[in-house]
Design a protein around this nucleic acid. Structure first.
Lengths: 229, 229
DNA sequence: CGAGCGATTGAAAAGACTCAACCACCGTGG
DNA sequence: CCACGGTGGTTGAGTCTTTTCAATCGCTCG
């Protein structure tokens, strides 16, 4: 379970809120939000929620990154999405009326706020802008996943890796991509060994450089070309 | 473009409405719906909309089946979803504010009603039940696609085919699955030749039987076992 | 210092794809 | 009525990608 927050964040000052679904909140709404949320500190590799459990609310990422994944038959993880600061995690489950179909786990130390299901649904009911933002978000993600499925079905592992690195760079912004080889493989949808061999190829082709586990992209254009996109 | 309807359907009597998002409509709402919709007959293989074009409204399937697909780099189709009677097609694009990311084409003769974007959005704004139904639908599909991605990434083609046949049987209800081998391959995410070979294997294993192109499932349990689900 | 995890490499096997050819069926036009 | 062309279905052979299994290495942590 999450430990006590080592730094309390107020929604008003929350930098991550600027690029979240709450960005359009007026001062009054922000105050209400602030009074309802609880703020927690998460260590690396702590779960926010697990597949099969009952959704109780949403998680608002202040800092840190979280992986969203499903498990296949043999328990192998398939990473569906990586969330970074400002994203609200787990809101789909607020509407489905079903247990979580995916799990969420921190990849780094995180500060994450929690808003209960009833508080969240109240906000959605009363705040049209929030609601429209959510419907838009749901629709956009649905389209993204159609593309994801198509890539998975039609692209080679090499192409998918190139494309994934580009996507991940967007998540990591100005930092370097920093994932275990296994997580990266589970995002690309391949075996860890295959992933490592392809990373080596990319290094030899001067597309990337590795610093221990961190990956630096040297040629986004080159990767785009490889990805066939 | 669609031809004139050969059979005008009123929403009130529409059997498909019973299992659609409009099922909870009161008489008054149904009347409003009926006055706004236009009804069209579609021949086999006619497009409802194409990837990249601008969404103008939603399509309500009275009868017939429609495939929703994306195209990969080399133009190969990836079928994301098959819609049957009662389903509303294309409503995600009403909220995303972007051009279609997928295409939709009839697989058989269809009777399909059209509701303009503004009329549809008006209904969503004013009808809470409809809105909640839509949010639930969006959330459920998002979860379904996470499973789809996981299957695509981790299962063999043989496993995916077994699983796909079970899914398709639900779409085709008491009828036999009736798709071109190519469409089936594009749903499973494989090459047509591979698909045909696997169908042959399944026939030899007494899991299915084919009647020309139609596929009859002899052992759902057997397929489930093969699918590893 | 030893255990253990994550990263890496090698070799062999399996799965799937591509290419090429052929067949079967169907509707058309001569 | 029949030859023709086209589409969809099927089969075979060869190739390539990717996986699997096994082993090694480096590093951190207790």
């Amino acid at each position: 379970m999450p430990e006590k927050s080592h730094r309390h964040v107020t929604c008003e000052n929350c930098l991550s809120r600027q690029n979240s679904l709450f960005k359009s909140f007026c001062d009054e709404d922000v105050e209400g939000l602030d009074s309802k949320k609880s703020c927690s500190y998460y260590k690396k590799n702590q779960p926010l929620f697990l597949e099969g459990s009952t959704p109780r609310g949403v998680f608002c990422l202040n800092s840190g990154k979280v992986k969203i994944f499903a498990r296949g038959e043999e328990g192998k993880e398939q990473i569906i999405h990586l969330s970074a600061g400002g994203e609200i995690v787990g809101f789909r489950a607020m509407f489905s009326g079903e247990p979580y179909k995916v799990s969420a786990t921190t990849l780094e130390e995180c500060n994450i706020c929690f808003i209960s299901k009833s508080d969240f649904l109240d906000m959605v009911d009363t705040n049209v802008t929030l609601r429209n933002g959510i419907m838009k978000e749901l629709s956009t993600e649905l389209a993204d996943r159609a593309t994801f499925i198509t890539n998975m079905a039609q692209k080679s592992v090499r192409e998918r890796l190139a494309f994934s690195l580009i996507l991940l760079q967007d998540v990591y912004k100005d930092e370097m991509i920093n994932l275990t080889r296994e997580d990266l493989a589970n995002f690309v949808g391949t075996a860890t060994e295959t992933l490592i061999r392809l990373l080596k190829d990319f290094k030899e082709e001067k597309l990337i450089q590795t610093h221990a586990r961190k990956i630096e992209i040297l040629s986004k254009e080159g990767l785009l070309k490889v990805s066939g996109a």
